[in-house]
Design a protein around this nucleic acid. Sequence first.
DNA 1: CGCTCGGTTGACAACCGTCAAAGCGTGTGG
DNA 2: CCACACGCTTTGACGGTTGTCAACCGAGCG
Lengths: 217, 217
Amino acid sequence: LEAIATTTRYHCGQAIFSQTGQVEYWYRVLSGAAKVAVIQFNGKRQIIDLLLPGDFLAVLTTEEHEFALEAITEGTVIACYPRQQIEELADSDPRIAREVRILAFETVSRLQEQLLILGRTTSTEKVGCFLLKMSERLGHRSDKVVLPMSRYDIADYLAISVETVCRAMTTLSDRGVIALSGKRRSIRIVDRGALEEDHDSEFGDRNGQVPKIISRS
Amino acid sequence: LEAIATTTRYHCGQAIFSQTGQVEYWYRVLSGAAKVAVIQFNGKRQIIDLLLPGDFLAVLTTEEHEFALEAITEGTVIACYPRQQIEELADSDPRIAREVRILAFETVSRLQEQLLILGRTTSTEKVGCFLLKMSERLGHRSDKVVLPMSRYDIADYLAISVETVCRAMTTLSDRGVIALSGKRRSIRIVDRGALEEDHDSEFGDRNGQVPKIISRS
DNA sequence: CGCTCGGTTGACAACCGTCAAAGCGTGTGG
DNA sequence: CCACACGCTTTGACGGTTGTCAACCGAGCG
């Protein structure tokens, strides 16, 4: 599978691609980090996916939106696979087809998790869940998390403003849930349990209603 | 591919599955509509995906969340494929593998679109984009959209409250962008252009800055 | 040294969630 | 056939949260 890949090293902020229409390549981050952004007619940017080492991106078409893939850490290495060739390989080798399938499902899972984070009500929860997810995805066993992105990128990723991201950070820091180290992008998770529950039963579980009935149609 | 499927007809509000852990089946909506919901420790529900006829759902694992798939219209027909068998078929027949791949990529695309909607700033934009997407997905050429879901489901889907959904609807109606028919779930799109742009240059494009430089890391 | 950019904090207005209440539609039972 | 009840929808009032604007700090760099 790696035989048809062309790996390239990118600088921080460098665009891997940025276009509208059919995308003829699939990408995979080998080291560093990259963001998948959509530039809206509006001028506003939104980051709809964050790629860490091992993550995969396959975009079929980008109708009516301008997609952009961009490195966010210095020296990010990305493998680029021609779509045509990878499809042919998958057709001829079931193992490769299975691998591509798994990568696609991982992408689905990643996006679903992101949807859950965006569905949170308060910004503090969003940032808390984001930090938790980043801690998981970065895979370090320690509680130290070195964010690969700026606050601006976090804001675009969580669909909130930069100032709100900062405020959420300091709020979590004041609560003693996280600790902001000297280095700006380095964060230590102090109380992981509080991050996971967060607002859960903040004011006691006064809503004793068991949510058995899901539907209301 | 349809040989291994077991199709079942469901009532409105009936659960197709609801569990935590490994999901051993993949699903496809043949007619009607279904929602993929996550019940959080909190008790709050969030709809992370909406399945219309032709749409596909494959969940690998639902670690740490309880996933539920539930019909939202009466008489929804859903095909259920055992994961094991569909993988074996895909391994033996490249055409099936390709089909599964395409379905997975469509799921990715659907989730990305939903992320874009959730990334909108105001609730009116969210509802407007949602209606536009529903109009596209339902595929009717006319401007009439019959929503398959309740306002509660829309709220859980857009991560806003029910009241806000109603207010956004009436706001759009007051602006003359949409028309609320007598039937509650029937909506007519009057000014499609306004829905697409929406807030775009509401107060003139005072931010003349061309967003060439995407990155700020 | 001055510049730029990222990060942080404050003030204020607008938006949205919550609580409350009232209008509708549908289905069921009398 | 009608009355009632229940659930969905809508609207209002109010307080909390967040976006926006503004200013300041610190670090990197020419």
